[in-house]
Simulated assay, not measured.
Amino acid sequence: MVPYRVVIFPSRKLSGASTSSNAWVSLGGTLGQTSNIPVPRNQVELVFQHKNLGLLTTLRIGHDNTGMSPKWMVEHVLVRNEVTGHTWKFPCGRWLGRGIDDGSLERILVGELVPSHITSDDLVESCRTPVRCRSPNMPGPRRSDLKLTIPDIQQHLGDSVNNLVKYFYKPEKERGSLTLLLCGDFGLVCCLEQVFSYGFKSTRFFGKNLYLWDYFERVQQHFEVLLREEAEREQLTGITRDGRDHGLNSMAELVGLVSRINASSSHLGKDDKFQLFVCLAARARLLPRILLPLQRSPVTSHMYDESSFLRDPQLVRDLINVLSALNDFEIVLESSLTRGID
């Protein structure tokens, strides 16, 4: 058994520094994952024993939203293997609680090993600083603050895909963390969020921010209508069209995937659901296949400016070419990422 020390750094602002709820953490690594481990009330540090988890990759943190003041702002979480001395840093910078941020009661954080030359004092001070690059990603409306250009976003996405391709060509012992390449800083999720956020009409309607997951839910509803109409047409005519030519198979996959994520991840916020969608769609080789149906959907023209990636046929073709490079590889997701889905 290995002792692990977990230190949570909440916001120093009084309103988000503590929670009345019952909080918990769950760790995932290359050799396994833990169940939910309770965080002692009014404490931000705990030590627990568990069989060796290997290199740590993910940390889930959540609470049950109970009590008078459940809302909790977590900046970072540190986890130390007390045997090896290795420490992992999990950036968060997000709220946990209903009615704030994206309403999440659970966050999936991606960690990086802290270099050995970083002193404890420097590490603690960095964890008390609000997160600028959030994990797994920032709320959709805030992504526009980065003021990225189309060439910037294309470069970031191309680099993230190239890093994944290089990962699969390396010997297995030299590969490192696939989860980090998917969900870490400038990983596939982050870069596709940049793509989908560009030109996204995330303005406030009736006092509510729109998130990218709102777009995918509306697309799901539209695709469900199209698939139902296609089934009725087939029943009347007896003629079945090739679903591949018309994108019907890809539409059906998206509908099923969004439904599974919503049904099994009710405590996750909208941004974490987007992260799950990208990871699962990459594994299913769905990402390049779904772009043309998305481009043709009236939901896209309603929720995106004309300057967006999704409304420009050439930019969509470029995205398809870049993302198709991942089709040659078998993406295996850690169970800590897909818990409750698979």
Rank of each mutant, 00 (worst) to 15 (best):
I37D: 03
L287Q: 04
K89M: 15
L178K: 05
W213H: 05
F223E: 01
R143G: 00
S116I: 12
L257V: 03
L182Y: 05
E230T: 14
S11T: 15
Y215W: 11
F277Y: 12
S104Y: 00
L210V: 02
R143F: 08
P136Q: 04
G238Q: 09
P91H: 09
P3T: 08
D305F: 08
Y304E: 06
R5L: 15
R233G: 03
T30F: 07
S336C: 13
N81Y: 03
L287D: 02
W72K: 00
F200V: 05
C92L: 10
T300S: 15
N65R: 04
E217M: 10
L310H: 03
D312N: 15
D102R: 00
E193R: 03
V74I: 15
E45H: 02
G247K: 00
E224G: 02
G93Q: 12
R204G: 00
R60K: 07
C191S: 15
Y215H: 11
G247W: 07
H267D: 15
L113F: 02
L268Y: 12
S301H: 10
I150W: 01
I261P: 01
T119V: 11
K270Y: 04
V131R: 09
G103W: 08
Y198N: 11
L46P: 04
S15F: 09
F277I: 06
Y198K: 02
W88I: 07
V165H: 07
Q194S: 14
E174W: 03
I118C: 13
Q295A: 11
G243N: 11
L78Q: 05
